[in-house]
Design a protein around this nucleic acid. Sequence first.
DNA 1: GATGAATGAGCCTTCATTCAT
DNA 2: GATGAATGAAGGCTCATTCAT
Lengths: 213, 213, 213, 213
Amino acid sequence: MTKTANKTRRAQPREVRREQLIQATIKCIARHGLSGVTMGRVTREAGLSMGIANLHFESKEKLLLETLKLVTEEYAAGQTEILTSGDYPSTAARIEALLAFDFNQNVADKNKLAVWFAFLGEAKSRPTYQRICSRQDSLAEEKITALFQLALDEAGDKKADAGLLAAGYIALVDGLWLNSLVDPRRLPWKKALRAARQFLASALPQHISLPPG
Amino acid sequence: MTKTANKTRRAQPREVRREQLIQATIKCIARHGLSGVTMGRVTREAGLSMGIANLHFESKEKLLLETLKLVTEEYAAGQTEILTSGDYPSTAARIEALLAFDFNQNVADKNKLAVWFAFLGEAKSRPTYQRICSRQDSLAEEKITALFQLALDEAGDKKADAGLLAAGYIALVDGLWLNSLVDPRRLPWKKALRAARQFLASALPQHISLPPG
Amino acid sequence: MTKTANKTRRAQPREVRREQLIQATIKCIARHGLSGVTMGRVTREAGLSMGIANLHFESKEKLLLETLKLVTEEYAAGQTEILTSGDYPSTAARIEALLAFDFNQNVADKNKLAVWFAFLGEAKSRPTYQRICSRQDSLAEEKITALFQLALDEAGDKKADAGLLAAGYIALVDGLWLNSLVDPRRLPWKKALRAARQFLASALPQHISLPPG
Amino acid sequence: MTKTANKTRRAQPREVRREQLIQATIKCIARHGLSGVTMGRVTREAGLSMGIANLHFESKEKLLLETLKLVTEEYAAGQTEILTSGDYPSTAARIEALLAFDFNQNVADKNKLAVWFAFLGEAKSRPTYQRICSRQDSLAEEKITALFQLALDEAGDKKADAGLLAAGYIALVDGLWLNSLVDPRRLPWKKALRAARQFLASALPQHISLPPG
DNA sequence: GATGAATGAGCCTTCATTCAT
DNA sequence: GATGAATGAAGGCTCATTCAT
């Protein structure tokens, strides 16, 4: 049962409805692709009436934007938590946590990855999408650069370029996600994780090591 | 002036028209995104009349598919040339060539990258797109695995996993392209190339070295 | 003024709209022929907007089919009423009623005849039309055969074939309608009725007699 | 093989091409219905090139009109031959010949009947079709009336109305053809003929008699 | 706030017609 | 005369958006 079975559809707080619609939008994008999203599908998925999406978001475009923002910000929040909270005993542990975070997403998150790449695919021609995506990546790069710089400093490595490493890591994760999403058979989740770990193990051998397997 | 100013309706061989329309489609996808492609835009871009696209391709869907195939096959052809021709003095030279090939595309190729990612973004929900993209990646992974295996053998490295390395390289290149396309300011082409080179230098130190810069 | 001048978009029950659209379709077929029916004409005739026909019927084809069904079923209902109700004092009276029914249709019914023949004209190449039309005729033939058989029995006629008579009557009525529709000057309604009556008078002299005129 | 296999398509006399195209049109109407006729289908059926139809007939409409005319005139010619030639020993023989003519058409003629009813179905809304069809029927009615009048005179019947009889006969034949075309299972050709014969036997008992069967 | 019937612009597609070869 | 690639108007259909209830 996919509907929220809200037979007595009474008025709900604004935020509840918005969340409900965004979640439905995520499912629709994952299932039908960005171009297959229609207001009808979204509201049906949410178990609500056609008109409601325009009531709470002014237009389809706004709904899509808010969906992108939600996905982006959710990821950013989790990442920021790891990158800036002081709860890790070591830099190595923090990097391990980042790795674990990037490759431990559950099914719901697969949908969100699909959303992310759906927007990225259109981003080149849509300044608004581009801005949101770029901003997310810029912030991530900044923080990851700092983390890697710290690790390099700890290792006494003065030649390696932390910024380059961060850009590489971000790109690698994006690439692994995308490849894994498009062809999970060729690149299963575990292999993706191992590839990412290997990247870090090569670049930061004193912090990350390959598992014996 | 983008049109070919073909006021005098002149019959052209089938292949010429198809090529013309596919090129126009590439431009449209790059400019407006996959969802912004209309038959009107494509044919106007090609300087032809509305009906012609359905005359040479049967439908919009077929036109898009042929466009994806062309882009995919063009890339595959170039890559295969490098990976299988015997004209390289050493494995290292061949890897260098691969790197150069992946990051030396001209402006027209930027459009093709946009096409590639536009389709990838929809691939999850479009089996046909998925099949074409997967196939391309599978073939590439196979050949690159063989190349890296050779390099590892030459280096006497018995622990590293060539398949993992290949998957990582492909994902990294995809990720770098995508990031560079979406935000060229954050990730300029040169930086992308340096990141890719660094990945290879870490994994295959005897074959690829970082430039002094 | 043919429109219902519904400037203020007012929601109507599903059935009301369907009826409205089918009536408009009947008028369009009568006025422009089956091949001249466009969704634009139908909805304009109905005083509604273009999209509405696809909202209530799924496609133009479905709308046409429902129109054919309505016309067919309306006629069948009236005919069945006469052929099976017990309200006639004699077999002769029932036959008279059938005759009266077949040739006493008002102007609206002329349109419906046009619809009937428009579909019949395409029926040979359209299995769906064919099925609907055939079914109507089969049921009619069955009931009329029974009626004529009864009359023959009453008259003690053992040689005449009621089935042949029924098929002849149905064909004659079809032919008279068609001729009258195409060229009302040559075959006015009254003459058509007289021709049909004469057919019955010849075949069932004890039940139907020619008027003195 | 439906094409005329005219591999060396050289110039042909105007009339040959016209005939070729009209025959193709007849087949197309029978197969696809009037609304399913396209210039592409017609010319392909004729084994000729797209442009040729507009070369020999000025437009699609003209081609259709000529097709209707041909079918109409062919029928009229055969009928006139029977109704006006002096080669029959008796009025009865002439009536028998008419009956045989109306129900002895071969397969090619079934296609022509389909053409006839396809146009009749649109005739109400197409003055040009209407004119051609009406004219044909008027001429037929005139001649058949004369024939029946002669028969009535011969029989000394002063009450029956030959004009009514003729109109009835024409309508009956139309109706039988139409019913037989739409549902040959319900109304096989033989049954149609028997129904027509029975009509004439009732009206002109001294000239036409029912077969013992 | 919530509903969903209604609207109408925009799209893909078909096809009669044209015309350079 | 003959060809068939090219044209472009017209039609069916989709769907974001509106608004009376």
